[in-house]
Design a protein around this nucleic acid. Structure first.
Lengths: 136, 136
DNA sequence: TCTTTTCTTTAGCTACGCTAAGTATATCGG
DNA sequence: CCGATATACTTAGCGTAGCTAAAGAAAAGA
């Protein structure tokens, strides 16, 4: 029942992290999209939606919210007028890093309580889960 | 940056599983609560909310929805009139198993594509993540 | 008895996810 | 060149999940 346990574990982990993210003033979904914008350079709306495995309108709203708060900016493509490029602002990059540090601080406390062996296990498993989540 | 990668991995895995659960006609949050009701015997609302790391009103609504669909039943406690006991119905148990089988089927296909070593890794990591999510 | 505590629900808000439909731009066949 | 189709994104509207604040009902204590 690996599937069950992974599912349940993911749900509970996210609920826990959600609280930390809430304190940082940004939701998990936005944070995840923002990190793509920050680290994968300017991306189009379509690329972002695909990267986040989310329908296009969902990404439109996520970006609209972040644009209102000055975390990202939109630019129309010069060649293709339909395409919108998303770029993280300096503030967006700063917020991302701050939120990440905050998560890191709380999670680090938890991780420190683990066996070094468990920690190595998690590090290795994260990659596998990542691949699992991005399949299909 | 294990925290980041775990966070991102959990988000993407859940988004993927959400689609499967949707096809099964039950959401991830309900499924998770239902499995507690099924496997941890009758539980009170408070216990359920605590087990799922969710505020009480959230659990009230989850249970209300599942009660409407005949997946669980409520009973007042004989001794303490404030307490409500939640019991999974036969239908609820059936639905849970069906949804689990469905998830299992899709995830199994993914898992089969993994190295046996990766699979063992995931099995071991699930327990660690579980503990991580249930902390504090 | 009156107050306080505990368990649950109601009301109301924000946010995320979806589909269906609309708009604007590109592209292709005639 | 022009109409039809295809693509990229947005708008509208719905359902669900999460929260807090406050209310209701029952238990426990002064």
């Amino acid at each position: 029942m690996i599937a069950d346990r992974l599912h349940s574990a993911a749900i509970h982990l996210l609920r826990r992290l959600r609280k930390e993210d809430g304190r940082a003033g940004i939701s998990a979904a936005r944070l995840s999209a923002l990190s793509v914008a920050v680290f994968a350079g300017p991306v189009t709306m379509g690329q972002l939606a695909a990267a986040e495995h989310v329908a296009a309108p969902t990404m439109t709203r996520l970006i609209a919210g972040m644009e209102r708060e000055g975390l990202v900016e939109r630019d129309r493509d010069f060649e293709d007028g339909r395409v919108v490029w998303i770029r993280a602002t300096a503030k967006g990059t700063r917020i991302l890093c701050a939120a990440r540090d905050r998560r890191l601080a709380t999670l680090t406390a938890d991780l420190d309580a683990l066996d070094p062996a468990d920690l190595r296990l998690l590090a290795a498993a994260a990659g596998v889960i990542e691949r699992l989540g991005s399949e299909s």
